[in-house]
Amino acid sequence: MGEYRHTGGHHVHAKKAFEGHINYDPKKGFSISNEYMKSLGIDHLKVTSTQRRLFGELAKSGKPNTLKEHTRIAVESLVSGGEGKLTYNQARNIVSKSLKSLKAANVKTPTTIPWNS
C-alpha cells in the first residue's frame, strides 16, 4: 500500500473523483498493489465494477457528492471485491489510510462523481 507511483494497482478512493482538483496528484494517490490485493483475495475487476455501480447509484440519488460518500463507496467496493475474504473492518482500515492521504494533500472534496459526469 502507498502512493500509486510506487505500488500501481488500485486507487482506493477513485482517482477519477478528484481529476482537476488543484491539490490532487493521481501518481501520489493512495493505492493498493495488485499483488497485495491478490494476497488478500480481492478481485480488482469486481472492486472497480462495484465502484461504478455505487457511483451510478449516488449520481441518481441526488445525495451530495461528498468525501464521506466516496469513502463509503471505497469500503463497500473493497468488501465486495474481497468476496467474503476481506472483512468490513479490514476494508475500513485500508480506506482510512487513503482518507488520511487525501487530507494530508488538502483534498477535502471530490470534483465529480466518477463515470457519471
Results as ranks from 00 to 15, higher is better:
K108P: 01
N116F: 04
S80C: 08
S77K: 08
W115E: 00
A14Q: 11
N106G: 04
G62I: 08
E69M: 13
S33C: 03
S61V: 08
Q51L: 11
L102R: 07
T111C: 05
E76D: 12
T7W: 09
G62F: 05
A17V: 00
P110R: 07
K38T: 04
R5E: 10
E76P: 05
T71S: 14
S33E: 03
E76F: 10
L58F: 07
E57N: 15
R72E: 07
A74C: 11
G82T: 00
E35Q: 14
L54M: 13
V107T: 02
H21A: 07
N34W: 06
G29V: 00
P114H: 09
E76T: 07
V107L: 06
H10R: 12
R92M: 11
M37K: 04
G2P: 01
K97N: 12
H44A: 12
V95A: 08
K28D: 06
N34A: 12
G81R: 04
V47F: 07
E35G: 10
S33N: 05
F18Y: 14
K60P: 02
H13S: 06
G29W: 00
L99K: 15
V95F: 06
E35S: 11
T7G: 07
A74W: 01
K27Y: 13
E3P: 06
I113F: 03
E69S: 12
I32N: 02
A17E: 01
I73A: 07
L54F: 03
Y4W: 09
K16G: 10
S80I: 01
A14I: 05
T112P: 02
S96N: 15
K60N: 10
K68Y: 04
D43A: 13
Y4R: 05
E69V: 04
M37N: 10
S117D: 12
K100W: 06
H44P: 07
S98R: 09
Y36C: 09
A105E: 05
I22V: 14
E83S: 15
F30D: 00
S96R: 15
N116S: 12
T50R: 15
T66Q: 11
L45T: 14
V107N: 08
I73P: 02
G29I: 00
A59H: 08
E35P: 03
P26N: 07
K28F: 03
Q51D: 05
L99T: 00
S39I: 01
S80F: 03
K63L: 14
H44R: 15
S96P: 01
L67K: 07
S101Y: 05
E83L: 11
I32W: 07
